[in-house]
């Protein structure tokens, strides 16, 4: 029964990724990236990771798409002082022969597939990842976190609390760096710049 949901999602995921690689129009590519993120969030939900799925849907499909659209609106191809922009201003130029990159990607992919032959099977309860950090922490997290039932939240906020603090520091640093990069000495074209900056601070 589950296969009827999983297989279409995986097929759509692969099709979306290939479409992103082939399509020339950048607006369409950004929208397909949002669809790709949302489809991968759907697969994460099926793989029992609802917290990651929510975050991926909100951050990957939401904020990333908004940031890319804001960037795209600031970077049309031709530099025009006036006149309406057409969709051709947001199209990639045709690239060189794709054969050499395709060869590299195929070789790398084959090497990685060869590497998976030593991996534990999908869903295997005896895989090293399930056995090694003794799973009793799943049950112990509840008394540690005063009855909080969600183990992911317990680990994120308690056992790995300092890591989460460091992550916040990374976001802060990135925000400051974006502000410094986008800052201008002259104060012309203020409107378009503040648009991008508001996007970063979501």
């Amino acid at each position: 029964m589950m296969d009827f949901i999983v297989i279409p999602i995986l097929a759509l995921l692969a099709a979306t990724a290939v479409t992103v690689a082939r399509i020339r129009n950048l607006w369409a590519a950004v929208m397909f990236t949002g669809i790709y993120s949302f489809l991968s969030a759907s697969w994460m939900l099926i793989l029992d990771a609802p917290d990651v799925a929510f975050t991926e849907a909100a951050v990957g499909a939401g904020i990333t798409t908004i940031l890319m659209l804001a960037t795209l609106s600031l970077t049309p191809r031709r530099h025009r002082k006036s006149g309406r922009l057409s969709s051709e201003d947001f199209e990639e130029r045709p690239s060189k022969s794709p054969l050499f990159p395709l060869l590299i990607v195929t070789i790398t992919g084959c090497a990685l597939v060869y590497g998976t032959f030593d991996m534990p099977h999908f869903g295997d309860p005896n895989a090293p990842i399930q056995v090694y950090p003794e799973p009793s922490f799943v049950e112990k997290s509840q008394p540690d976190m005063h009855g909080l039932p969600n183990v992911v939240t317990a680990v994120l906020a308690s056992y790995r609390g300092y890591d989460t603090l460091g992550e916040t520091a990374v976001i802060f640093t990135a925000g400051i760096a974006v502000l410094l990069i986008l800052r201008k000495n002259t104060d012309d074209k203020d409107g378009s710049e503040s648009q991008a900056v508001t996007g970063e601070n979501v």
């Binding site: 029992d48 399930q130 992911v152």
Partner: peptide
Amino acid sequence: SNPIPSVLMLTAIVVGIATTALALALVV
């Protein structure tokens, strides 16, 4: 299912959006 990959990837997603924002600012 194992909660540890979920925890690690939550951190990675948030760090990923930070690097993406930085890259896009550089593009602008």
